[in-house]
Design a protein around this nucleic acid. Structure first.
Lengths: 179, 179
DNA sequence: ACCTGAACACCGTTCAAGT
DNA sequence: ACCTGAACACCGTTCAAGT
């Protein structure tokens, strides 16, 4: 996305965009706000709620992968982002967490989700783009070589859910631990 | 970093760089290879080993935050990256994991580390840069409001280790679970 | 109030020309 | 073998000028 290309695509032929948005960053923030989904209504099952919030976020990124750099560069400040964050906190409270422990869980879960999306996009473009650069011989990496036949065992959806379940298990342990 | 600025900084006055590197991407890959630390020798404590590998990676990024986008955009293919990955796998094998379960653990741990680094850089620049954009009133976000006084309870090092411990606990549970 | 066009200060990359 | 300089096709942003 570039201001000039967007102008051209809109027929508006140039950078009249600056009469509607102060700059490129502000325009992209509005785009992010426009595509952000509304958080789902909470149920009594915090795992299901947080899983759904995770899935929503991942679906948004996979629907608009070009926006990932924008999402990574700064926290979203729009109205729905605040509601979504509140819903995430509500799920963790339902899990029995409070105060600093709740924030620990939130940040750890959030880091996993963001990191997974980065790795997923990296993998999706690296897969069908560059077959060129295979590593050399990779001598003395026996475990890497042995694991090669398991590398394709999971698809992206499965892998995301497996890591998510691991986060939820860790959160359960945190809630059951020293309160 | 731009090719023109780098040329200027080297005194070489222009883009003679293309006689040494095919393009900007290749040059940055060499920089990444040059600053990548050697993986530490394994001990008998897989948690300590994987924690050290995590810490090394995080230290590298915090020493060179401008390289994070490069690291996120494609997997590193240099010699030391292969050795580091092998060391990561070795630690997880020491934890009692094999095959697909080992890869599940590796990808989940890796996603957490990468996501944390993204959030950390986002926070480090957002903190001392933009005081300007505070959210509006944020009505009906009671949990968010209540958690506000806990937001600064952890520093970046502590927070990273807490999430790392959660990953390790989830890995332990995975290794103890259905083999 | 909205759009245009030229301008400024940048990019990565190519390529003929110099030494 | 290595570097230069001009050129090409881009950027984001500003600003005076038009309607």
């Amino acid at each position: 996305m570039s201001m000039r290309k967007l102008g051209r695509a809109l027929g508006v032929e140039a950078m009249a965009l600056y009469h509607h948005f102060p700059n490129r960053t502000a325009l992209l923030d509005e785009v992010v706000a426009a595509i952000a989904p509304e958080p789902p209504a909470p149920t009594s099952d915090w795992r299901a709620d947080l899983a759904e919030l995770s899935r929503q976020y991942r679906d948004m990124v996979n629907a608009h992968p070009h926006l990932l750099p924008v999402l990574l560069s700064r926290p979203s400040r729009h109205e729905r982002a605040a509601a979504t964050q509140e819903a995430q906190y509500a799920a963790l409270r339902q899990a029995g967490l409070h105060g600093s422990a709740l924030l620990d869980a939130h940040r750890t879960w959030g880091s996993y989700v963001i990191g997974y999306l980065v790795v997923e996009q990296q993998g999706r473009i690296g897969a069908h783009a560059s077959r060129e650069w295979r590593p050399a011989v990779t001598v003395d990496a026996p475990i890497t070589a042995e694991l090669d036949r398991y590398q394709a065992a999971r698809d992206w959806d499965q892998q995301f859910d497996i890591g998510l379940a691991m986060q939820f298990d860790a959160i359960t342990a945190l809630a059951a631990g020293p309160h």
